[in-house]
């Protein structure tokens, strides 16, 4: 029965899924290029919404009602709650202006392209083990993951690091839902809870860091290491 419904829907749904995946990658590149903190958070929210839509489509494709629950959760947590909290933090901490980058935008973008090529070359051999509807998705998920990692490396401000961290989480989530057609709800809930707790802890840290150094620039943290 399930196989039948997959075959019936896949003709319409898989192209849409592919477009969403491409959109995910575009958003990751945008995150890598964006200098303004406010826009970063907005892009993160868009990623969350894309994930939610993707999950819903996969739910439609497989006919698994649990994935719909997951889609609603994703939308509320990743699409609305987290960006809102980050936005609130931004206002409370009165961080303004541009993000300082350790590497300029064009070079970062070029590095990003290399990473995408690398990710696809890694993921291509694995396509044989995955359902036909999701070919290429794993590569995109891996690319998005590496791009978020690169973003964390190239930024200095604490807020942009947390954005990179959440984007990494999004990429993993994308790999789990789109590339392998869903994972058990309990695992998903666990991951969501972990991310939320991580966000709370990091939020507390933000205040501590700002109180200690009068800035959220992580470069000041270098002074607190153990002395020889």
């Amino acid at each position: 029965m399930i196989m039948h419904s997959i075959l019936a829907h896949s003709a319409i749904i898989s192209p849409v899924l592919r477009i969403l995946a491409a959109w995910m990658l575009v958003l990751s590149f945008a995150l890598l290029a964006q200098r303004r903190l406010l826009s970063l958070i907005r892009l993160l929210a868009w990623q969350g919404v894309t994930l939610a839509v993707g999950t819903a489509l996969v739910g439609q494709l497989t006919g698994d009602p649990v994935l719909w629950v997951s889609a609603v959760l994703t939308l509320s947590i990743k699409g609305i709650l987290m960006p809102y909290v980050l936005h609130y933090l931004l206002r409370r901490l009165q961080v303004r202006g541009d993000v300082e980058m350790t590497l300029n935008v064009p070079s970062t973008q070029l590095l990003g392209i290399l990473l995408v090529v690398f990710a696809f070359s890694i993921a291509a051999p694995l396509d044989g083990y995955l359902p036909a509807a999701t070919h290429g998705m794993l590569g995109i998920a891996l690319a998005a993951f590496l791009l978020s990692f690169l973003m964390m490396i190239t930024r200095r401000k604490a807020i942009s690091q947390i954005v990179g961290f959440l984007a990494m989480d999004n990429a993993l989530f994308f790999a789990a839902t789109s590339a392998t057609l869903g994972m058990p709800l309990i695992v998903e809930l666990g991951i969501a809870l972990d991310t939320l707790i991580g966000l709370v802890v990091i939020g507390v840290f933000f205040f501590q860091i700002r109180d200690t150094f009068d800035s959220l620039d992580l470069h000041y943290l270098e002074h607190i290491r153990e002395d020889k």
Binding site: I153, Q161, L221, E222
Partner: peptide, 15 residues
């Protein structure tokens, strides 16, 4: 040496 960016770079390169 306390630079978070470099620590991230270590794990990135390891990955």
């Amino acid at each position: 040496h306390g630079r978070i960016t470099s620590y991230l770079l270590y794990s990135f390169l390891t990955l």
